[in-house]
Amino acid sequence: MRTDIFARLDREPEPPKIEIPRMTRTRLALFGGTLAFYLAIVVAVLITSWLVTLDWKIMLFRPYQQWPQLHAFLDYYVVLGQRGPTAVMVAAWLGWRSWRQHTLRPLLALGASLLLLNVTVGSVKLGLGRLGPHYATQIGSAELFAGGDIFPSGHTANAVVTWGILAYLATTPRARRYLSAVSAVVALGVGLTTVYIGTHWLSDVLLGWAAGLLILLALPWCEPLIARAEAFILGVRDQLRERRRLVPSLPVAAGGPRPAMFPQHGPAAVDEDEEPTCAPVGAGGGRVAARPAAHLAPPHGPQRAHPVRSERTPVTPVAGRRPPRSRPVGTGG
């Protein structure tokens, strides 16, 4: 009779068919427009254009002093753009999705997006070396190539990628629309919060938005690599499972009976606890004291050495010994 567990498994819905995004013409056009915007921001900062002047005006305005009542809340809100906490939260959700849908694609897509984020944003940060508003040295300067690492804004780009990946991996168009709106609001709020606190210029935030959006738009190009990685990981898992099945597990209880390793020859079986002996026949036909036959010991048992001459039992024949030699007659009396 079937239990309730198997009945529930029968009623378990099948995993939904996941439609993998493709690089369509619309997505390709958005990618090209975002890339052009990205390059325009970089050039505007490099030539110290009006954008740099706007950065300084906002910095000298000091929004955190104009609205101090928002500071306590925004200090916590900006955590939504930190890579560590957000990556853990989103990875936990996508891990459940992977288990539910029987696929590793959600986790692998998150890993690929974070890898692209570290490589692209990190290289530009270190290459341009821009200082933040709190460390600026000359008013009106772009503060480039001074050993900084805030251009583009990592908080903003991370918020776009980490929360946007949920919309990218959505299984229905309705869920994709809702998640896209939520991720856009979160990323917009995180970027403006960094400007309010004074840790980033406005141009840093603009470039961070563009950098994160470029990664999300480029993810369809990574889908073939993600599929190969998933096939490889699942193949390794199947090999490990097969090896575990082939290895027998036969526990032997202490003191328990051992299976017969060698066949018993002859009509009668010999008890394993008794050692086979042989009794040689003496000269008079009688048997002498039996001694163990070392050559009959089982191959798996301990080998016994042959007894030395001093340890052997003296053989006494059963027949009478020769009579003692008598004296010759007439030799005295």
Rank of each mutant, 00 (worst) to 15 (best):
Y64N: 10
H71R: 12
L216Q: 05
L70C: 01
Y77C: 00
V329E: 12
G333L: 11
T172N: 04
A146C: 02
R321P: 12
H134F: 07
G301H: 15
D149N: 13
G129C: 08
G148M: 03
R8S: 06
H71V: 03
W96Q: 03
R327K: 02
L46K: 09
A293R: 14
V78T: 15
L94W: 07
I197V: 07
P13I: 00
Q239K: 13
E14H: 01
Y178S: 08
P280R: 10
G198C: 04
P259D: 09
S153R: 03
L131I: 04
L206H: 03
R97I: 05
A293Y: 00
R321C: 09
R241P: 00
L219N: 05
R11F: 03
A283M: 10
S141D: 11
K57T: 07
H265T: 12
L250R: 15
P280K: 06
H155F: 01
V79K: 09
T277D: 01
D271V: 04
A29W: 03
P68L: 02
H306A: 14
Q82S: 13
V318C: 09
L213S: 11
V288M: 14
S113A: 15
H300T: 06
A297Q: 13
L206M: 14
T137M: 11
A231M: 05
T156R: 08
P220H: 09
G191L: 05
T193L: 05
